[in-house]
Design a protein around this nucleic acid. Sequence first.
DNA 1: AAACTGACCTGTGAC
DNA 2: GGTCACAGGTCAGTT
Lengths: 224, 224
Amino acid sequence: MENNDREESLQHFTLQIPSSSTNSGAGSSRSQHVERDREIEPMFDKALTPSDVGKLNRLVIPKQQAERHFPLLGHGSAERGTELQFADLRTGKQWPFRYCYWGSSQSYVMTKGWSRFVRENNLAPGDTVLFLRDVRRGKFLIDYHHNQQPPPILHPTPPLELRQLPDGGPMHSVPYMFLDFSAPQPVRERRRVRLFGVNIDSDREGDDATRGSNNQQDWGPRSI
Amino acid sequence: MENNDREESLQHFTLQIPSSSTNSGAGSSRSQHVERDREIEPMFDKALTPSDVGKLNRLVIPKQQAERHFPLLGHGSAERGTELQFADLRTGKQWPFRYCYWGSSQSYVMTKGWSRFVRENNLAPGDTVLFLRDVRRGKFLIDYHHNQQPPPILHPTPPLELRQLPDGGPMHSVPYMFLDFSAPQPVRERRRVRLFGVNIDSDREGDDATRGSNNQQDWGPRSI
DNA sequence: AAACTGACCTGTGAC
DNA sequence: GGTCACAGGTCAGTT
């Protein structure tokens, strides 16, 4: 997929996340109730392709992002990849992924563990994953958002009142304010059974939703 | 796969096998020309799946049978498996198989050597392998039979005259009289190129021949 | 170099 | 409904 530069349209910042606080409300980028600040740095995101969420059980990491942000892997030799741990930005849940370089396709990929992430978060083509770093703790984080594209027939323009903002999970209640992720988002369970008139548990490999469009974004390693 | 009990339809017996004799004819379960008897004990059989005979180069051994009949392997740890020798029941030919436990799929498998057995015996999905023990000598034996299912179109009911009984190989000429293995069996070479209208050397991964049916049988370690 | 082999992985169905 | 067994995969190393 192409690597167009959408950089000009982005916001770069470090998010201050209180490890325990009441939800301070959307729109505030700094919590007033900080116990331990964490500097969270977005690395890059990617709009998921049909293959990323399909039966191939792998996520292709754009080469440039992989080599910039993730541990280097020995390409040519006996390299079994390495396991990387990602903490869910919202829930804190740990997601271990095996991170590999596949010489056959010259691609960096997340393999083992990825399909579980897709399934449990009900990800579909066009949804976005975001990789981040907790700079202070030296840990990786992961977040996602569902593609806000309204189902063409059933929900042409969900009214604002029905939009559902993601809520924090049981561990850390983290304001979810990266980028433009607060766009309209239909309730996931409804989409799960009805969107496009199919159960998304069924195979939809031919899905073309994201082809031909830019689908990953790099923020670089800086913090502002 | 369910583990239905087909036991009631089976015959259990110990076969007396003459180590050298003229073929004593089908239907007699005891040779009159015994030099050294061997007590042969069927352990279990398995109807081969497309994967068992395909490019995966492994035979999955049903867990229950594996743990009942084969040497115990260290499951949880770095276990490279062990080599088991199987003597062809009819020819005496030695077939070494590597026998492993794959923790990732929690499966017992025959790996190295298995594909050669498949190829040289021209095994196809739906065919059956039978594992036996030579009790006296403490050795494993293996046998197989081709699926006698007539090709639905070409050979709806092969006439008796055309049925070919397996003949003994060059080493030991052993009457082949286990169970009901004397069922109609088309000539293998013909089937190889024409059965079901396809060349069985080609990929037939979608083959559904054995799905949904019980495909392995346990006789237990007794001898009658 | 292409094919084969074997280690590892996952979805699915049964229980 | 969670767990388990296994059929069906991928991919890297080997030949």
